[in-house]
Design a binder for these strands. Sequence first.
DNA 1: CGTCATATTGACTTTAGTCAATAGAAGTGG
DNA 2: CCACTTCTATTGACTAAAGTCAATATGACG
Lengths: 246, 246
Amino acid sequence: MLSALIQKLDLFGPLSDEARNRLRKLPARLLSVAPHDDIVREKEPRGDVRVICEGIAARTKSLDGGDRQAVLGFVLPGEVDESDPLADALDHGIVALSPVKVALLARQPFDQLLLEFPDLARAFRRMARLNEGITRMWLANMGQRAADRQTAHLLCEMQVRLCAVGMGGADWFTNPLTQEQFANVLGISAVHMNRVMQHLRELGLIRIENHVLRFPSLARIHEYAGFDPAYLMTDARVRAHEQAAE
Amino acid sequence: MLSALIQKLDLFGPLSDEARNRLRKLPARLLSVAPHDDIVREKEPRGDVRVICEGIAARTKSLDGGDRQAVLGFVLPGEVDESDPLADALDHGIVALSPVKVALLARQPFDQLLLEFPDLARAFRRMARLNEGITRMWLANMGQRAADRQTAHLLCEMQVRLCAVGMGGADWFTNPLTQEQFANVLGISAVHMNRVMQHLRELGLIRIENHVLRFPSLARIHEYAGFDPAYLMTDARVRAHEQAAE
DNA sequence: CGTCATATTGACTTTAGTCAATAGAAGTGG
DNA sequence: CCACTTCTATTGACTAAAGTCAATATGACG
């Protein structure tokens, strides 16, 4: 049930077998959530630790008394509801974007485990730090540039991240989002999102068949988007992993 | 020299006198930086810890090979260059927005001090967490809403934060930024920024004399901006402080 | 007094939003 | 498997927001 989490943590600092086993044995319940439903409501008092096992969710913050819902980032399989599992509370909500399976881990034994295994706590902190970097990149990407560049950048990021959780390959990924959801993430209208997608297709930067989004040329869309995957730390994590394997 | 830092840390978790003294005695140099000059360059290898003592700086990320420079957040007096002082490196630069005085603390003794005084480390972590919350709020605020609301929101935030470092009062602050800098922060053009400012003045939401920006009615601009100061944790910090004083 | 940075204005272009309608795809019950 | 509903994608026409270019004030300061 927690294999996605364990696999991901492992990339951030190899876990001992014992930590791994203890994590696996934590009291947990599995929950299915339909797209558009809340996984954690904003301002909800801190409860169980939520681990996304399957599907994709988004961190959201509602504005203007609920009129708009800003998307702060994605939560992918293997990630937890709080960027820092030791934080007091969540200042934002989490909503399912696709059908999602969530594991609920009892808070108390979880916290206990982090105290017992500093390596585990460290892996979580690193994961949190990666997410902060991604948030900063989103902030830089959005608001500063034209919608088509933003979109291209987002797609590049999704390719790398979804690839890491088995939802894609070297130049493609299985797209879990509707255009309306993309629009919401970037804060633009759905109509405009549609036109941007067409534009990217006309430029030959993306191709879509079924729900597979493919980049005819990685180099070209990276260039167009100004995308440098360094901030996703894929390399560093792979390196860490390889070291661990030795 | 480090009084701003110590005062701020104190709000996040009262420091022992010893921690305070040791912090004060760290090997340090003081540096003056002119507006527009770099305090930390992006991708610069990790060096001394920089503490802003006076003035205001911004975290920035350059896009499209240096054409644009996105602003990720402010660094105010008492804050350090890295949100988490234990992080490996900085994924962004820091540039002075006004004349700034920076203290450079030798990295090694600083790290050592954090290990010796877990309370100190904890205060830094809390400060980092606050900054993450602010970044998320910026992400939500920008990109989603019209420029005049964004601007109003930013001004509300600045009032609270600058007030906390002695650059303002209950309904005003000494504005350290030019309109061009504001425009850059919000990712809009300087011309549009100017028109937005005029609009806010016409609405009676702000008033400017010399470099003092005043809100004729806190309630009205908060309402207009959809601003809720909770994310700045001013209350929590004040409470923590009061408890400490007992 | 002259110079430089900052703020302001006007005219015009581009980007994105809104409204409304239509076309396609996917899913459901019979 | 088909008819039907519903969600998703697409299009056109029009409006509003923001950018760009260029000129002109306004102010701070040596």
